[in-house]
């Protein structure tokens, strides 16, 4: 396993290099000039030229690229064009917010999704199964902005039970976590159901039952553990998607997260912030993948890393 982890860490550097390179060049392919965007539509060309020079954007692109990569090696992500703050500070101010919201959303998803999936599997073909899978289908289909609006209208505006703005209290996490988590819960529920059904048909389950293991023991110990590998896979993937893809929810709940920062920076053509944000997301994603792989090995001793 140690060799595997070492290899994975080596690979992480390759991924980061590729992410940095791709984001650097792709951004420069988008029409729009950062100096012009910063100076605003009323600036004179001499003002724009001064800004361009101060941001080193007047240098040839290959030179800008080598300077950027050189700074990266030193751990310097550069400065934001717009705020002139170090990009690392900008990213670190928002990354924990995104991470926390992703984790609470995933908790919502798992806590709702797995039990519903098990429940449906045990009542295959009965009313409970049809009902819970019907509802989960609804959950998958609902766009997050719509669900978020609905939750705000119901719990904040109508019943005034939960806040929809700010992040000072734990209550602030409930609505955004539900908005993001419910859709994933629906996915997890469907997958859990399928995996459980597959496992529950296996011979060793029949053996366990034959040995007189209680029904709960059969379901939660014997079956769930074997179904868990595929559930872990989807959790790992969805968590990755959550980290980068919550722009809409972050906007709706005024959540100062990484996704919104990247989109705002892109609108202002603040290349450095976009590149820094992508880099941190890529790093988080590869670490998540590694953790998922380790979880496999822990859950299923047959898997050797």
């Amino acid at each position: 396993m140690a060799v595997y982890i070492a290899k994975k860490i080596g690979l992480t550097f390759v991924v980061l290099f590729c992410a940095a390179t791709c984001s650097f060049f792709l951004l420069r392919l988008i029409p729009g000039d950062p100096a012009e965007a910063l100076a605003g539509p009323q600036a004179t060309q001499s003002d724009v030229a001064a800004v361009r020079a101060s941001l080193n954007l007047d240098k040839p692109i290959p030179l800008q690229y080598t300077a950027y990569m050189g700074n990266l090696l030193k751990g310097d992500l550069g400065y934001s064009y717009r705020s002139r703050r170090p990009v690392l500070d900008e990213v670190l101010a928002r990354w924990p917010n995104t991470l926390r919201l992703s984790l609470t959303s995933m908790l919502v998803a798992v806590v709702i999704g797995v039990p519903v999936g098990i429940f449906a599997a045990r009542r295959r073909g009965k009313l409970g199964d049809t009902l819970s899978m019907g509802i989960s289908f609804l959950g998958i289909s609902m766009p997050s902005f719509w669900l978020g609006m609905l939750l705000i209208l119901l719990f904040s505006v109508r019943f005034k039970l939960l806040p929809f703005y700010g992040m000072d209290s734990p209550l602030n996490y409930i609505l955004p976590s539900l908005t993001l988590g419910l859709g994933i819960a629906a996915n997890i529920a469907r997958l859990t159901r399928v995996s459980m059904l597959e496992v529950l048909d296996q011979d060793y389950i029949r053996t366990a039952r034959g040995k007189g293991v209680s029904e709960a023991g059969v379901v939660y110990v014997h079956a769930l553990r074997n179904a868990a590998v595929s559930i872990i896979t989807i959790i790992g993937l969805q968590l990755g998607a959550l980290l980068g893809g919550q722009v809409v929810t972050e906007t709706l709940f005024s959540w100062p997260g990484l996704g919104r920062m990247i989109v705002d920076a892109l609108t202002a053509r603040d290349y450095m912030v976009v590149q820094g944000g992508i880099l941190v997301l890529a790093l988080t994603f590869t670490i998540l993948n590694l953790l998922t792989d380790i979880c496999y090995a822990v859950l299923d001793p047959r898997i050797r890393l």
Binding site: D89, A93, N97, R100, T104, D168, S169, P170, I174
Partner: peptide, 21 residues
């Protein structure tokens, strides 16, 4: 449990940004 956990997380939220200069 989620609500409690979120609260615990909320407490140490400041550290990464207050590290900054």
């Amino acid at each position: 449990l989620i609500i409690t956990l979120a609260g615990c997380n909320g407490g140490d939220s400041g550290s990464p940004s207050s590290d900054a200069s």
